[in-house]
Design a protein around this nucleic acid. Structure first.
Lengths: 202, 202
DNA sequence: TGAAAAGTAAACTAGCTAGTGTAAAAATAC
DNA sequence: GTATTTTTACACTAGCTAGTTTACTTTTCA
């Protein structure tokens, strides 16, 4: 069964795509509604037919960014597999996620807006920064199974994520460094696994 | 000897302070030159007498922020002191620096501007993110003295800084969390020292 | 004291901003 | 084929923007 795609829906999507593209280039404040309409190849009136105001368009897009980010992978703890292999797989997964070029541009827009509009940092949004749940769940299970030392899983998780983001996320967000190559991702994964397990493996 | 402070210098400083204060509240794009003049209690013409354009005022302030940040403390490696005590002192120093409320607001302005104006991220600016030199030097010396395992000092340093920033800097910059309390700084320091030395101590 | 330097208010230009009103054209629905 | 919805171009408001001009006052400094 094919889903019906109305012209209205196409226009709406064009507006969202155009706005996002303009935001990525100029930032939210320096992107006008005229510019958005032009980028989306749509009349300005059509923009206002779909979104009551610029504010609504911006928050819709930023919330959409977050919503897409919530879907993470699910790798479960395996009792019969070496810890380092499992952890490496989980971290590699996180890194692929964090290094995604497309995602980084979206997040840059969201951060640029949220820095001076902190009120939209609602609970639903800050989830992104805490929701790497597959990894937390894995830590909990490994601790329960007695294969990791007793720790607050939240703390161990925060340490792992900090180690990854500090080298594969923040420098890229700030335009300091290009995305990591596959070899670099590999190396960072191994380093982090060794570092982490040296301290936490039971 | 008292340094002569001219009225012109006072006005200039008032402009800088006013602009910075307005930037912190509204972000650069959403702060007008009229607003800056008003905040600084100065006529708009005086603003333009000191700074040729808004662009020049912005870049002057942001460069000044960076310049101030380059001055870090100097704790040297001591051959006759326990590693964990020395490292704890160094990390505590970094944390006091990163948790400085005033600094965080300045950096938020700089980041908000640089996100969509990456060209001003010149070499002199990105230094801030690499210049925690006291810590790097300490690692090098401890490695040379055979008290830390052989590693690239840059890598070990990056790991330490990531662990600190991930919990005491980025969440605060993004308005997610309040500044760390002294007790939390203490705890983070101890955790990080233990984590790091478990892997790297020779 | 008196000339030069710096600061002032206020009006002004020219262009951009978010958002609206309108009437015609095009696509869709039945 | 007709009725309805959607999109379109375009003119418009009202306000803000960076930056300038002018005529004037205050401060500095020798």
């Amino acid at each position: 069964m094919t889903v019906k795609v109305t012209r209205s829906m196409l226009k709406r999507q064009a507006i969202i795509d155009g706005a996002l593209s303009a935001f990525q280039q100029y930032g939210v404040s320096d992107t006008s509604m005229d510019k958005i309409a032009q980028t989306a190849q749509v009349s300005k009136r059509t923009v206002y037919n779909h979104f009551e105001s610029k504010e609504q368009l911006v928050t819709h897009i930023i919330k959409e960014i977050w919503r897409q980010n919530i879907l993470t992978c699910e790798l479960e703890y395996q009792a019969d597999m070496a810890l380092d292999v499992q952890l490496a797989a989980l971290l590699k997964n996180e890194l692929d996620f964090l290094s995604n070029q497309n995602l980084q541009e979206l997040i840059r827009v969201a951060i640029g807006y949220c820095l001076f509009n902190p009120e939209i940092f609602t609970a639903e949004m800050s989830e992104f920064f805490e929701q790497e749940t597959a990894l937390i769940r894995w830590i909990k299970q490994a601790v329960s199974a007695g294969r990791l030392r007793q720790v607050e899983p939240q703390k161990a998780h925060a340490q792992l994520i900090s180690l990854l983001k500090g080298q594969a996320f923040w420098p890229q967000i700030l335009h300091q460094q290009p995305a990591l190559t596959n070899a670099q991702i590999e190396e960072l994964t191994e380093d982090t696994v060794a570092f982490f397990l040296a301290y936490y493996q039971a």
